[in-house]
Simulated assay, not measured.
Amino acid sequence: MTSALVSSCGERLDRLRRQPPLVQCITNYVAMNYAANVLLAAGASPAMVHAPEEAGEFAGLASAVTINIGTLSSRWLEGMHAAAKAANENGKPWVLDPVAHFATAFRRKAAAELLALKPTVIRGNASEIMALAGDASSGRGVDSGDSVERAEASALLLARQTDAVVAVTGAVDFVTDGQQSARIAGGSEWMPKVTAMGCALTGLVGAFVAIAPTTPWEATVSALACFKVAGTQTASQSAGPGSFAWRFIDVLAALNGDVLQAQAQVTPA
Results as ranks from 00 to 15, higher is better:
42 A>D: 07
83 A>S: 10
188 S>L: 03
30 V>K: 00
251 V>S: 05
268 P>T: 15
256 N>G: 11
266 V>I: 13
11 E>C: 06
53 E>Y: 13
103 A>P: 01
220 T>V: 10
5 L>D: 00
134 G>N: 08
197 M>A: 05
38 V>I: 11
94 W>V: 14
177 D>T: 13
70 G>T: 05
182 A>W: 11
250 D>T: 05
244 F>A: 08
193 K>F: 05
202 T>V: 11
206 G>T: 08
206 G>A: 04
41 A>W: 09
91 G>R: 04
246 W>P: 00
244 F>Q: 04
221 V>L: 12
96 L>Y: 06
14 D>I: 01
163 D>A: 13
247 R>M: 06
160 R>Q: 14
181 S>Y: 01
23 V>I: 15
183 R>V: 09
56 G>W: 00
234 T>F: 08
124 G>A: 07
258 D>F: 11
29 Y>I: 10
251 V>K: 13
90 N>Y: 07
89 E>C: 04
89 E>D: 14
25 C>Q: 06
50 H>W: 12
43 G>K: 12
172 V>H: 14
46 P>N: 06
136 A>F: 10
205 V>W: 02
82 A>K: 01
68 N>R: 11
105 A>Q: 13
240 G>A: 02
140 R>E: 14
244 F>R: 00
102 F>T: 01
127 S>F: 06
90 N>Q: 09
258 D>Y: 08
186 G>K: 03
234 T>N: 09
78 E>C: 10
17 R>N: 08
196 A>D: 09
216 P>D: 03
15 R>L: 15
238 S>T: 03
147 S>Q: 13
194 V>Q: 01
198 G>Q: 00
54 E>F: 10
5 L>V: 12
126 A>D: 06
66 T>A: 15
151 A>Q: 07
267 T>D: 10
253 A>H: 15
141 G>E: 14
93 P>H: 01
189 E>H: 05
3 S>R: 15
251 V>M: 12
106 F>G: 00
162 T>M: 07
214 T>R: 13
111 A>G: 04
21 P>G: 01
139 G>Y: 02
156 L>I: 10
238 S>R: 00
113 E>V: 12
23 V>C: 12
229 V>A: 09
156 L>F: 02
179 Q>C: 03
34 Y>N: 10
125 N>H: 10
204 L>A: 11
101 H>I: 03
101 H>P: 03
158 L>W: 03
253 A>P: 08
219 A>N: 09
25 C>T: 12
122 I>R: 01
35 A>Y: 00
162 T>P: 08
115 L>M: 15
72 L>Q: 11
264 A>I: 14
127 S>Y: 12
114 L>P: 04
167 A>F: 13
184 I>D: 04
56 G>N: 04
269 A>R: 11
55 A>Q: 07
234 T>L: 07
79 G>K: 02
11 E>W: 03
165 V>Y: 02
124 G>T: 03
69 I>C: 14
248 F>G: 04
11 E>R: 14
33 N>A: 07
84 A>T: 06
10 G>K: 05
235 A>V: 02
133 A>R: 05
230 A>Q: 10
158 L>K: 10
258 D>I: 12
234 T>V: 12
250 D>H: 08
